[in-house]
Computed example of a mutant assay.
Amino acid sequence: MKKTQNVLIKGTKDGLTLHLDDQCSYTELKRELNDKLSESSRLNEESPLITVKVKIGNRYLTDEQKEELHEFVRQKKNLVIDSIESNVLTKSEAERMKAEKEIVSVAKIVRSGQVLEVPGDLLLIGDVNPGGTVVAGGNIFVMGSLKGIAHAGAGGNTNAIISASEMMPTQLRISHHINRSPDIKEDVEKKDMECAYIDQNDQIVIDRLQVLIHLRPNLTTLEGGS
């Protein structure tokens, strides 16, 4: 009877991918992993540093076990773990993902020196005065004047948008992209609600809110007009 392999090693253009069985015991997994990585290390002693992606399927690993895997691989001369991917979410990760998808509604004026920050989308019914800052992990909707700083997609979401009834910001940020008011105020009509987004040239631009129907059709679960 053929022995089941608990560790599969596949080479890619970016390094190595380790597929670890999620049914065997963790001890058994470490034993086989050690044998295969030791063999791989002996065959590649003169090779440059190789990055390793670890896929653990439906197995849950504690932080201590993840660190143990990192150290385990680091001992194999030219190997280093780039990421550990699991299909299992912890409770805190699930709660964070849920929070990032929620819309937080706030009715207030964000005054100079104040910072309003939410993990998901922000719906602000009020103004952001000069010197005030609003930050969201998702999108920012200001039902009022935006005259301060707005940072959408703070966690790295480049598809996030910023919209305001009156768009007069001192600075806009979407993910790691930054643009200031003097650079984005040209040819902007003031009669419509406006939005800022990252275009195909990787630049923050401002346009009428209506363009989002076509640019970001999955922006929210709310129904929109044509």
Rank of each mutant, 00 (worst) to 15 (best):
L89I: 02
Q65K: 03
V73T: 15
C195E: 06
E64C: 00
S105D: 10
I81Y: 05
Q65V: 00
L122V: 10
H177G: 04
E102K: 11
R59L: 09
V80N: 08
G137F: 10
N58H: 14
I109K: 12
I161C: 11
L124K: 02
I84W: 01
E189G: 10
L79A: 12
K98E: 15
N139E: 04
T51K: 01
M97A: 12
P119K: 06
K98I: 11
D121Q: 12
K190A: 13
V142L: 06
T62H: 00
K191Q: 12
I84M: 07
K101Q: 15
E189M: 14
N179Q: 10
G132E: 05
V142P: 02
K191S: 15
I149L: 02
K191I: 12
I178L: 03
T133E: 09
N87G: 05
A154L: 13
G144H: 00
E100W: 06
V104H: 15
K53E: 15
A94F: 05
V106H: 09
Q171S: 09
Q65N: 00
E71W: 00
S83V: 13
E189L: 15
N179Y: 03
R111L: 04
V118H: 07
Y60N: 08
H151R: 13
V54H: 10
Q171E: 14
V110S: 07
A164D: 07
T170K: 03
A154V: 10
K185E: 13
I174F: 09
G131N: 05
I149G: 00
G131M: 08
A154Q: 14
N139M: 04
E71G: 00
G57M: 10
I162H: 07
P119L: 09
D127G: 11
V80D: 08
L172M: 05
P182K: 06
M167C: 02
A107Q: 14
S175D: 14
S105R: 11
E166R: 03
I161G: 11
T62E: 00
E186I: 07
I174P: 13
V80P: 05
M168A: 10
V54E: 09
I103H: 09
N87R: 07
H151A: 10
N157H: 15
N129T: 10
M193L: 03
A99W: 09
